[in-house]
């Protein structure tokens, strides 16, 4: 299947996963503050038990699902993916998760649905960044339905076989490896199927800089910085920059989704 291919492909390309410590100590999770260490420092306060996800919109079986029920019987597999932040740094993460498509099948997507919208939990008492209002909350994201159904798209529940660290988006988060990291929304509490393109947080904040698609693309720069290269974190003070790959290295798998689209226009 495409999933094991992705895993094998990652090995074949000699991807060296970052350590769990690196992955869980350098994060953007503005609910806990804008500093890279803020999530590691503050995420501990987030309550993740019990956890339920509201599934609504154009689905056959809407409702509030306990996390375990939503994932019950689904195959949790490991996927070693590149993770490329829009800020031009990257990691390699061995995620554990299920394919989003399998969860969508479970809730029954109706025929008219074309997009999936996601929402992150908001716990003001436990989230200093929310109290300060550094950006509007709840954090919202979205995918086109075909992107959401793509076999590379995960709902991840762990890293390195451990439960997802809170600063990385416990207990369940999206992983879309060919898009900039902010598309991979954390700590999901709502999944909505819809026929209109959903609003997304960064696009609302600055549409010129953050498009709905936000596919990793070395040829389309962020207005304020180049996207041609990136630095994988963990390489120390003298880490070399490396070339950013089209669709973050998943071009063979996903380019067909965007056939005929002007990627400069639809950034």
């Amino acid at each position: 299947t495409a999933l094991s291919m992705a895993g094998r492909g990652a090995m074949a390309q000699g991807l060296e996963p970052n350590t769990l410590e690196q992955i869980s100590s350098y994060n953007n999770f503005y609910e806990f503050g804008t500093g890279k260490e803020d999530p590691m420092r503050h995420a501990d306060a987030m309550q993740i038990e019990p956890w339920s996800i509201t599934v609504d919109g154009m689905v056959d079986n809407p409702g509030e699902y306990a996390l375990a029920d939503l994932l019950d019987g689904l195959d949790i597999e490991e996927r070693i993916y590149r993770f490329r932040c829009v800020e031009a740094w990257s990691m390699v993460v061995p995620w554990n998760g299920v394919e989003l498509a399998d969860v969508l099948d479970r809730v029954g997507v109706q025929s008219g649905a074309r997009f999936v919208a996601f929402e992150t939990v908001v716990q003001p008492d436990n989230m200093p960044g929310v109290r300060r209002g550094v950006i509007p909350f709840p954090y919202i994201e979205g995918l086109r339905l075909d992107e959401a159904r793509h076999p590379l798209t995960l709902l991840a529940t762990g890293i390195y076989g451990e439960p997802m660290p809170k600063q990385n988006g416990a207990p369940i988060r999206l992983v879309v490896p060919w898009k900039y990291g902010f598309k991979s929304i954390k700590s999901i509490v709502r999944i909505t199927l819809t026929d209109t393109m959903p609003e997304t947080t960064w696009n609302n904040l600055n549409a010129r800089e953050y498009g709905f698609y936000s596919n990793v693309n070395p040829e389309v720069d962020h207005p304020r910085w180049s996207q041609a290269t990136e630095r994988q974190i963990g390489g120390g003070l003298f880490a070399r920059r490396q070339d950013t790959l089209m669709f973050n290295g998943y071009e063979d798998e996903v380019a067909a989704l965007y056939e005929g689209m002007d990627l400069r226009e639809n950034y």
């Binding site: 350098y26 890279k36 260490e37 740094w89 630095r231």
Partner: peptide, 15 residues
């Protein structure tokens, strides 16, 4: 600089 060199400025010391 020494903290960055010895890995005590987090996993992204350049930044």
């Amino acid at each position: 600089f020494w903290l960055g060199l010895s890995g005590q400025l987090g996993p992204e010391p350049i930044n």
